[in-house]
């Protein structure tokens, strides 16, 4: 007698069980796969961050190498000068000629000062390039800052009998920025104009709001050595020195305008240069966003009391035959 079909011999329960088991296994695999996918995404993000960090490190490493190379190369010049003159003095090469000894001492002083400036600029350029600089933003009067910079650089201009004129708008020209760094940028631009303008040349400095008063415009126009279009295109790069620049200032390090640009960029400003060519002078322009004159000035160093009450031009006119030019203030 044939046995009736049962759950066991038809195999149906075990088939259902297998289907169910497959479903469960499939869900488990799905969940694991999803987890893996999420981990994979996290890994990709980490990988991108690592790549980015690695690129920045490579750039910093390159900059460090450049700075090191430049430091050894550029510092060697003034150092050789110092050693040479010092050695001659020690060996009595100048005899009792006090004028020659004084001249050698002055050259040693000049070379050591330039070394100090170079080291300072290497450090600042390095910090700016690696975004390690924090600007202490505060509203301040750019007119007052500019007057201070011109006063500091007047002695340098006097040695070259340069005629410096300045037109600074008498009203407060308030910008939001780090006064120390903005001063440095202004100093670099005017210092460059002085150094690369032949003796008895002229430099015109202007500071005023632009036409819609949204920006403060600082302009330096000189009768200096000028530059080619090719030099202009690279002027704000690190370590660039125009070929004709060496004739005028041998100790330059090619970092000044790079630093100025980094500072101005960090203040949402614009720095530009134009020149009609070598020997035809140049015009350097910096524009910084203007703040309303109603904004109170927090820095006492740049307080309104320092600003001249009326428009004034500082007129620096060398007297013929005199090593110390006179300074006249014309209202």
């Amino acid at each position: 007698m044939p046995s009736s079909p049962t759950a066991t011999n038809t195999g149906i329960p075990s088939l259902l069980s297998t289907e169910e088991q497959l479903r469960i296994a499939s869900a488990a695999v799905y969940e694991k796969s999803r987890e893996l996918n999420q981990k994979n995404q996290e890994l990709n993000e980490l990988s991108l961050k690592l790549t980015d960090a690695n690129t920045k490190l490579s750039e910093l490493d390159k900059l460090k190498s450049n700075l090191l190379e430049l430091a050894t190369h550029r510092l060697r010049g003034p150092l050789a000068s110092i050693r040479g003159y010092a050695s001659m003095m020690v060996e009595g090469g100048f005899g009792t000629d006090l004028t020659a000894i004084k001249d050698a001492s002055r050259k040693i002083d000049e070379a050591s000062t330039s070394m100090e400036t170079m080291i300072d600029e290497f450090l600042v350029a390095s910090s700016l390039a690696s975004n390690a600089v924090h600007f202490n933003m505060t509203p301040f009067d750019m007119g007052g800052a500019l007057r201070g910079v011109i006063a500091k650089l007047n002695p340098l201009a006097a040695t070259k009998q340069l005629q410096i004129t300045s037109e600074i708008d008498p009203q407060q020209l308030i910008v939001n920025g780090d006064p120390d760094y903005i001063n440095r940028a202004l100093m670099i631009v005017i210092d460059n104009a002085i150094r690369y303008t032949p003796d008895k040349g002229s430099i015109a400095i202007k500071l005023a709001p632009n036409s819609d008063r949204s920006m403060i415009r600082f302009e330096v126009i000189d009768t200096g050595i000028g530059m080619t279009a090719d030099t202009i295109s690279k002027l704000f790069s690190q370590f660039l020195r125009a070929e004709n620049a060496f004739k005028f200032y041998v100790w330059g390090n090619g970092l000044g305008l790079y630093i100025a640009k980094q500072i101005i960029d960090g203040h949402s400003g614009v720095i530009q240069v134009s020149s009609e060519g070598e020997g035809k002078g140049s015009v350097m322009v910096i524009e910084l966003p203007s703040l309303s004159p109603a904004v109170s000035i927090t820095s006492p160093a740049q307080s309104i009391s320092e600003v001249a009450p009326a428009a004034q031009d500082t007129f620096f006119q060398p007297e013929v035959g005199s090593p110390k030019p006179s300074i006249n203030l014309i209202k």
Partner: peptide, 10 residues
């Protein structure tokens, strides 16, 4: 249906 509740969450 294929992969369970985890698929709904996804």
């Amino acid at each position: 249906e294929l992969f369970g509740r985890a698929a709904r969450e996804a």
